[in-house]
Every structure is written in C-alpha cells, then in structure tokens.
Design a protein around this nucleic acid. Structure first.
Lengths: 246, 246
DNA sequence: ACCTGAACACCGTTCAAGT
DNA sequence: ACCTGAACACCGTTCAAGT
C-alpha cells in the first residue's frame, strides 16, 4: 500500500513541487515523454516512495498536471465570458481564448492530449480521473451558458435534435481538431507568433458558427478588433499561471 | 550501424510479419502502449538486431504501421470518390468513409494519433517520416479533387482567402476533432455499433459544409440513404485489409 | 506514522562475436 | 554479408527496513 500523507497543506505544496519538476522536464525539450519518475525524484527533495504516495503512477501524475492546466483554462474562460458584444462575439472570444491558452504554452495542450490517451487514462487513479471529468464539466458549463443565452434571445436556433450541449460539442471538436492537426505550429512558436494557426483557427470557428446559423453571420464581425480586445481581456489571466519551481 | 537487408522481397515480407506481430500486441488489449520491441521479437522468428535493421526505433516501427493504415485509407477513398451524386454528397461520402475506416478498427486511428505525437515524430526515421508525408499528400489530393470539382461547377464558392486546400483542411479538422474527442466511443464499440459517434460526426460535417455554403444545403440530403449507399460501396475495401499474421 | 532507497522485472538500443 | 543475443543503461513500481 502506498504511504499516506496527513497534513493537507504540506500535501498540496508537495504536489505543486512535484508537478513543477515534471513540468520543467517537459519544457526542457523532450515533451511529455521526457517525464520520468526517476528524473522527477532527482529534481525534488522527496523519495520515490513519497512521490508514489501522491500519484499512483506516472500517468496519474500526468493526469493531475492536465487537470491543473484545465483549471487554469477555466479561469481564462471565466474572464472571457463577460466580453461585451453579441452572443456570437462572446462565443468567438471564448474559442479564441482557448487558442491563446494553448499557444501560450504548448505544454498545456500536449498534457490534455496525453491525458485523453487510452493508455494514460487506464493508469490514472480514480481520484484524478473523476477530478478531470468534473473540470471538463465546469468548462463545458461555462461555454454552454453563452450558447443558452444565444438560444434564449433568438440569435441561435439549433436544428432539431441539437441542444446547447450539441452546439458546444461541435464548436469544441473543430477547435480541438484544428489545434491538433497544426500541433507542430503550436510547438515551434513562442506566444503570438503562429499567424497561420491563428487565421485557420478563427476561420474554422466562424465556419461552424455560420453553419449553425448563429447570428450575426461572419462578414459583419470585425475579427481584427475582436481578437485584439479578447487578447487584452484574457492575457493577464494567462500570464498569472504556471506551476511553481520546486 | 544497423545491419542491411539486401533481398527486397524478403525485406517486404519480413516487415509485414513484424508489423503484424506489433498489431497483434496492440489489439490484444493494451493499445499502442503495449508494443514493445522485446515482445515483438518474441512473436517473430528474427532477432532484435534484425528488427532494428528494418526499423530504427520503436517509434519508427509505429510510424511505419501508421503509414500502412493511411495507405489502406487511401484505397478506401479511391473507392468512395466516384460515389454518384452531387459534389456535396461525394464530400460527405468521403468524410463518412474516413469514419468507417477508423471505426472498423480503432487501432488505425490510434496509430495515426500516435504518429502525430511529437515524441514519436522525433524518433521516426527520415524514410518513414517522408513516406508519411507523401501518403498524407496523396490523401489530401484525393479529397481536394472533389472540392475543386465543386468550385468549378459553382456548387461551392469559397470565401476570399480560402482555396481548395483550406476547405479540405477545415473539413478534416472537424472530422479529426470529433473522432478524437469521442475516442472512447470508438474503442468501446465493435464495427457499426456506436450510433452516437456516427450521428455527431455527420452532423458536424454537415455543419461545416453548410458554413462553407456548399450547395445543396443540409436539409435537402437524405442522410440515411447516403450513409447506407456509402457504406455498401466502401465496406469491401475496408474488409480486405489488415496485416498478415506472422 | 511516515519516509527511504535498494531491489526487481522489464524496456530500448548497441555491438562484439558468430556463421 | 548477414544475423544473433548478451550486455548496458535506464525505467516503473514495490516494500522491507529504518526513523
């Protein structure tokens, strides 16, 4: 049986240190694959056994890190959600925030991809798996609230068989697919340097919103202005995150 | 330096055996993560050194397997491409074929995801990386030909700044994102059992086509009939593939 | 009660030795 | 010229022994 840690404050702090060490490993070049319990332990003032007391496996640690990323994304969404403008502009701002969040640190997106991998999910602890699902739920609820607003005020009337959740899932699929397929662009660039990805991402999102018939349609929105405003609103939220160094 | 194999026929056959062994490993439960050079060697009448003569690393082997999957998808696309109907129906049929191909064996989709992973790409040999890019190019060319037809005959007029490649990329992003986010559904199901994924997938694709203004718009197409016809045309192409057993 | 790190089983890759 | 498998360095996980 894994050792147990009693003091809750220490526990949290130690987890921050452990995740921070793993994050350093990822950032220092090798990607998620560079995370090794051995190497994490070497960077950290605790023993292997203690690390295993906090995380039941390497994949469990990775899942916890993914959860941390999602929780920062939630804060970004919370800031983006009362962007002033039509519901469509709000939705665009939310979608764009997702891209900014991913672009600000490729690590985040890769951790989420990794956590979604069957191999990782199979080895994650129940606790962190449940936490992950709850966080995704929060994220989705935030997004859906904008969609519900749009439906209520008549700017969006989903086709029969599609509810707010379905709309969210469609937009989300497009966002995720676009970033995933252009992942190397996310990797290669520092913040704000990948013009191609950004243009494709916004085009794709608008395509879906147009397909949904979400008023007002594409051409009446000034994208330049919107992205700039969105960036300004969201940037401070993005900067303030990142695990502490061990 | 890795040993070299001279006889080309033997070489091909041995690669089939090696990839087949790896495929068995994946299918027998553990997913792509279950592939181990040790375990592959145990299943195969060659030594470790010989395996490394064919594939420069485990990731190189995985990439080669991904390439094999893409090549089977190309054959499926080739069968789907002269589906009779409007260009929009053709595009739908191609997109649907992609889903059928993935659903018929989750292994395929997972191998592609794995091959796209930065860690895998970094360790794949130049040869297999180039092969992969060439195959994706073939696939894209096939898809683009339908889009060009649609543009030529006026059923599709892309917005300014978007060409056939851009249209293909948009549809592709949506397809990939949808399957990726519902991956567990792909995993859990035998062929043809995951109604949810199928419905969401077609809805999403139609959403993008509508957003693109690809005529005729959504509601005038009988999806039921289309998917059935598409399935019939494509099914034999899908069945005839899979690596030989060692 | 909590923590340690040696020990174990397994993995990827190489290469000296064989044929 | 081609192939083998022992050898090496490293990895994830456990757990008897310490405090």
């Amino acid at each position: 049986m894994a050792p147990k840690i009693i003091n809750d404050e220490d526990k949290q702090q130690r987890q921050q240190v452990i995740m921070g060490a793993a994050l350093e490993l990822i950032r220092s070049g090798g990607g998620v694959g560079a995370v090794t319990i051995d190497k994490v332990v070497a960077k950290v003032p605790y023993s292997k056994g203690t690390v295993y007391g906090h995380y039941s496996s390497k994949e469990d640690l990775l899942t916890a890190m993914c959860n941390y990323c999602v929780s920062t994304l939630i804060e970004v969404f919370a800031a983006a959600i009362d962007f002033e403008g039509s519901t469509r502009e709000k939705a665009l701002c939310l979608a764009y925030s997702y891209l900014l969040h991913a672009q600000s640190d490729m690590t985040r997106f890769n951790l989420v991809v990794t956590a979604k991998t069957p191999a990782t999910r199979a080895k994650a602890s129940q606790h962190h798996t449940e936490e992950h699902m709850a966080l995704e739920d929060d994220l989705n609820r935030l997004f859906c609230s904008v969609i519900v607003d749009a439906i209520d005020n008549g700017e969006l009337t989903p086709k029969p068989g599609m509810d707010a959740g379905g709309v969210a899932f469609a937009i989300w699929s497009m966002a995720y697919g676009t970033v995933a397929l252009l992942q190397d662009q996310v990797e290669r660039c520092a913040i704000r340097e990948s013009q191609v990805l950004e243009v494709a991402y916004l085009t794709h999102t608008n395509l879906v919103l147009d397909g949904l018939g979400w008023q007002p349609l594409d051409n009446s929105i000034d994208l330049q202005a919107l992205t700039r405003a969105c960036h300004q609103r969201v940037a401070p939220q993005i900067k303030n995150h990142g695990l502490h160094k061990p």
